[in-house]
Each structure stands twice: as C-alpha cells, then as structure tokens.
C-alpha cells in the first residue's frame, strides 16, 4: 500500500463546522483528499456529506474551520478554488429551456474557451456521454439519466482538476451506473481528483481508493476500503451440515452463532481471514463434527458502516449489488 503522504493534497479541510440555525450539519470535519485519488464520502442520511461538498465547492461558507483546494483557501481565494473545480450534484444543474448542445456551449463561453477548442470539446462530450443524437433537443425533453449525463458533461467542459460528485448514481439505471463508473475511472486515468458521496457502499468499494466515513457531521474513520474493513468485525463464515445432529453439536461449540434449521447452516462472525477459517475448522475437527461445506464472506463496507455509526445504510447494498452483478 502506498504511503498516504506520497501524493500532494488536492483538498485539505480542518475542523469544518456548519450550522443552519441551531441545527449542526458539520461539527468539526477533518478531511484530506490526495491529488489523483478517488475519495468516497460515505455516511448515513443527514451526516453532512452534501454540506461538505457544498462548502468545498464554495456554495456555502463554513462557520468554523478552514479548507484549501490545491492550496487555495476557500474563503480567502474562492475564485482560484472555482477555477480548478467542477461540481455535479443531486439536482440536475442544467438549463432546461436550452438544448443539450446550447448548455455545453454556455459552459464553453463561461470558461472563455477559444471557439475551436469549444467546438471540439462540445462534440467530444456529446459523443462520450451518448448525447449526440439528442444534442439539439431541449433538455426539458430529456430523461433523468440523460440529464445526469449532460450535467456531468457540463462539469467537464472546463477540464477541472477536482470533480465533486454528490450521489452521482442515485436514480440511475444499471447501464447508466456502469457508464458513470467508466467515466470516473477515465477521469482518474487522466489525473483528475474525485470526491464523491454515495449511499451505495459497494460503489465506494469499487470506485474509491480512499473512503471517509462521516457521521453526525464529523469524520468517524478513513482509509482505503481494505483498511476500513479490517477495523470491522463484520465478516461471516457460513457452515453447512448434512445432519441435524452435527448442526446441534456445532451450535453448542460456537455459542452465539446464528443457527438456521431449515437449511442446516450456522453463521459465525469472523474476519474472513484464512487463519480465522482454519481455527474454526480445527475446533470442529477436535469435536468430531463433520461439515459439508463452508463459505466465507469478508466484512464489507456495510459492516464497517454499521459498526462505526450504529446504522445500516438506508439504501441497503442489495440495491447496489442487485444491479451491478
């Protein structure tokens, strides 16, 4: 695993706090996003993910703390920050009365691109986001997925160095999700830094090289997905037995395991390591219990999420895994 400090930081936030009236959205968030990384911000609803993105993209002013984007302070040099970021949020930031092409041209003009560059990027982005055919239709006639894609295309018109994606795949169909994942990977290959929020932990697991878990407006844990999973006791071993006697004996041996009479199985907590599995098999052998089959499931981010926040994510991972397998 590469050392964390090897890469310069794209984003560094220290003690960010934001209050809406008496409601605290962030209570002192520390966050680092190394350049060129995909950092996923995960956390329960209302934990402050979107507020974090809105502060880092200069839409909100923090009440306390400070943050820099490529060394530029959010509050003191917002223009410099804005020049290097692109934001795609939960609500489509497109102009519904304009066509797709006009929306991209609007971005090109606001980025002060030369005409030739602008035309090239517009055509390129329409192609990349599969919008060429719909380019000259008003956005009001677009489907939700098309709006999402146009939204991201608009974000990329200025070739930002950091892209914020706030729940980029919420509401997308499986194909749309895969298209977005591919685009994120392409961006990273081009050296773009990405900070994304998501409810789909599997998405964070697949896309992110760093995960920051936040709860009640503060950072709870951070690290690579595998580092985080090690912190969690959430892994499972599932033992299947041929006879009821064997199941009963095993249930006595492993007190507290989850016993399922209907398919003669027993589920144990485990870190999912080879060592852990071996210990279980050793204990069964010593008692002379015969196991028919065994399956091991390492802890996933759902378990981390649960262990550290006491909440199951509201959209269970079944939603995410169901559509991407």
């Amino acid at each position: 695993m590469p050392p964390k400090d090897a890469r310069p930081l794209a984003i560094e936030a220290v003690g960010l706090a934001k209050y809406f009236g008496s409601q605290a959205a962030l209570t002192g968030l520390d966050l680092i996003v190394p350049e060129g990384s995909v950092t996923a911000l995960i956390g329960p609803n209302g934990s402050g993910k979107t507020t974090t993105v809105r502060i880092l993209s200069t839409l909100l002013t923090p009440n306390a703390g400070r943050a820099t984007v490529f060394g530029h302070d959010l509050v003191a040099e917002p223009e410099a920050v804005r020049a290097s970021i692109g934001v795609t949020g939960q609500f489509s930031a497109v102009d519904r009365l304009l066509t797709g092409r006009e929306n991209l041209a609007l971005m090109a003009r606001l980025q002060h691109l030369r005409r030739a560059v602008a035309l090239e990027r517009i055509a390129g982005n329409l192609e990349r986001f599969e919008l060429t055919e719909a380019a000259d239709r008003p956005v009001a006639t677009y489907s939700g997925g098309m709006r999402r894609r146009l939204d991201l295309a608009m974000t990329l018109m200025g070739e930002p160095r950091v892209v914020f994606l706030d729940e980029p795949t919420a509401g997308l169909d499986p194909r749309g999700r895969l298209v977005l994942w591919r685009i994120v990977r392409d961006l990273v290959a081009d050296g773009v830094t990405i900070l994304l929020t998501t409810q789909y932990l599997e998405e964070a697991d697949r896309l992110a090289d760093r995960v920051a878990l936040i709860d009640r407006g503060a950072l709870v844990a951070e690290g690579t997905p595998s580092e985080l999973k090690k912190q969690s006791p959430g892994g499972r071993i599932r033992l299947h037995f041929a006879e009821e006697d064997a199941l009963a004996a095993a249930a006595v041996e492993f007190d507290g395991a989850e016993r399922n009479e209907s398919d003669l199985s027993l589920e144990l907590a485990s870190d999912g390591s080879v060592d852990g599995i071996r210990q279980v098999l050793d204990r069964l052998e010593r008692r002379g219990i015969t196991v028919e089959s065994l399956s091991a499931q390492p802890p996933d981010l759902d378990d981390v999420f649960f262990a550290l926040t006491g909440n199951r994510p509201e959209t269970s991972s079944a939603v995410a895994s169901g559509v991407v397998q």
Partner: peptide
C-alpha cells in the same frame, strides 16, 4: 430555483 444557478456559483466567472 434552478440547479444551473448553483453551478454558476461554483464557476470562476
């Protein structure tokens, strides 16, 4: 009330 206004606010214009 349109999302695009929020986008304008995040741009260096």
């Amino acid at each position: 009330g349109e999302g695009i206004i929020a986008r304008f606010r995040t741009m260096a214009i």
